[in-house]
Design a protein around this nucleic acid. Sequence first.
DNA 1: CGGGATTTCTACACATCGTAGAACGTTGGT
DNA 2: ACCAACGTTCTACGATGTGTAGAAATCCCG
Lengths: 113, 113
Amino acid sequence: MASLGDLERSVMSLLWDGGQRLSANEVRDQLDESLAVTTVLTVLSRLEKKGMVHRERSTRPHRYAATASREEHTVEMLNEVLGTVPDREAVLARFIGGVSDSEATALRKILSK
Amino acid sequence: MASLGDLERSVMSLLWDGGQRLSANEVRDQLDESLAVTTVLTVLSRLEKKGMVHRERSTRPHRYAATASREEHTVEMLNEVLGTVPDREAVLARFIGGVSDSEATALRKILSK
DNA sequence: CGGGATTTCTACACATCGTAGAACGTTGGT
DNA sequence: ACCAACGTTCTACGATGTGTAGAAATCCCG
């Protein structure tokens, strides 16, 4: 459902990193890429329809912000992927078997809390 | 890269679960859905191009098998998703914070090995 | 009220996917 | 050796998603 194209992803990245409430023009300027503002507006509208950005319609240049943090969204993606298999745990076991030692240590710590 | 459509996913599911080396006809029969065999063949060819199935060209009805297990493939997907973010661990921390108690226990056990 | 800024509408090209007919290749049986 | 049945490849079409942006409508400051 929430799969993104390249430009969509760039825009989300900006909203995620850069903080908050950008206008279409600001997005265009920060992506630079010499895009037409209408292009950016189209993309923002599509992202809004996908529920990934919130649009502030009250202000005059409308302002846009991500509805979920990058981490929240990514976790959702992970769960979506895991939802395609019959045995979550089998996949997780294999996944964890492949992580680096340092990451494994970090995971242990998180789980021990 | 390896995103699948609905029919493609059904076919992969069959190859993953059902075990091994099915012919196009067998795939069609087991999916039933009254599909044309050519449809199944098209899908299998596309899956081959994506590197997800291996085709045995020596036998007369060609036979198809998944190149990776469902778990292997899904782990690849997980890593692909995690590759889109700058901070894997932040995402994993959040992910683990949201799993069920029983799953957390299972993960602890896997990590302690 | 007029004109620049902003947003919405419409549109097109391109890729992917489900779908399958038409054409082509292969092979066993007579 | 030939044909008929079966299997594979080629080609194609409609639907959907995405990048791209012009044209048209809307809005607000001065």
